[in-house]
Design a protein around this nucleic acid. Structure first.
Length: 264
DNA sequence: ACCCCTGTTCGGCG
DNA sequence: CCGCCGAACAGGGG
């Protein structure tokens, strides 16, 4: 599921455990989700430490613990974060469980495309600061977008909006939502976009992200009824504007829905 | 049985 | 070396 707005919602699920100590950790270090990290160190260092804070950037999350311990989580396609009771017993896909006295903080991921990273150090993990601006920040402006688009002239715009180096946190449904709102055809080569279309893509990106954070990101409620996402997966999905039948294509290996009437 | 998938990474190709 | 694309990862759901 998770794109930036859902990630934000998942991140907050563990907030109920803020300020409380981790009393035990359960994990299977051989699991793929721990690739590139040392799960034994994670286990050893987190026990007895307090959960202090968390933050999200794009689709990534960072959880901070006392004594300079940091936990990074990426949910991949099917990852989820939730809270269970203190006597919770993990099931097959519950790859990481942080027990506190009153609850269990659980990371689960059936397909194991997600990832858990651990870092110990006063400075915080070097993999956290990528230099890519958050879409809601002021640094994500028209100039940044223009420069990014210029670097990918040959690719279809749909693929470019999915690149995390530029459009941090945008995933498949948000990309389609943005291009539909900007009235741009997803297969269009990025280098063929007019100045006007680039501006529309920039504005639509800001808008879709902001509104998604206010709905999905806040309490997992649906985005507005007149958004494309509600039609995109329907066999007979129609454009929310004037009920034209949507067209479906594969772009960059991803299912893409768009309105042949609105999008040029 | 078969095909689909809201993500990322890697190898091949041009 | 760079940019682009398809495959692979792994499992559940339609």
């Amino acid at each position: 599921m998770p794109e930036l707005a859902e990630v934000e919602w998942y991140r907050k699920q563990w907030n109920v455990g803020l300020g409380k100590k981790i009393v035990d950790v359960r994990l299977d270090g051989r699991n793929r989700v721990f690739r590139g990290t040392d799960p034994r160190e994670l286990h050893r260092r987190l026990v007895d430490e307090k959960f202090l804070s968390s933050e999200a950037r794009g689709k990534r999350m960072l959880f901070k613990f006392s004594s300079h311990n940091w936990l990074g989580i990426h949910l991949g396609m099917t990852g989820k974060i939730r809270v269970e009771s203190g006597n919770f017993h993990p099931n097959k896909h519950d790859h990481l469980v942080l027990y506190q006295s009153e609850r269990a903080l659980v990371f689960t991921d059936s397909r194991q495309f997600g990832r858990v990273r651990f870092h110990h150090g006063r400075e915080g993990p070097d993999w956290w600061d990528t230099g890519v601006p958050e879409i809601i920040s002021a640094e994500f402006d028209q100039r940044f977008v223009d420069r990014f688009l210029d670097r990918h002239r040959k690719a279809p715009i749909k693929s470019v909006v999915l690149l995390q180096n530029g459009f941090s946190g945008i995933g498949n449904w948000m990309a389609d939502e943005i291009l539909w709102r900007a009235k741009v055809r997803p297969p269009k080569r990025t280098g063929k976009l007019t100045r006007h279309e680039r501006a529309a893509i920039f504005r639509a990106t800001k808008f879709v992200v902001r509104r998604s954070l206010e709905t999905l990101g806040r309490n997992f409620t649906d985005p507005p009824k007149n958004w494309l996402i509600h039609q995109k997966w329907r066999r007979e999905g129609v454009c929310p504007l004037h009920r034209t039948l949507l067209r479906h294509t594969i772009i960059g290996g991803r299912t893409t829905a768009w309105c042949p009437r609105c999008q040029k």
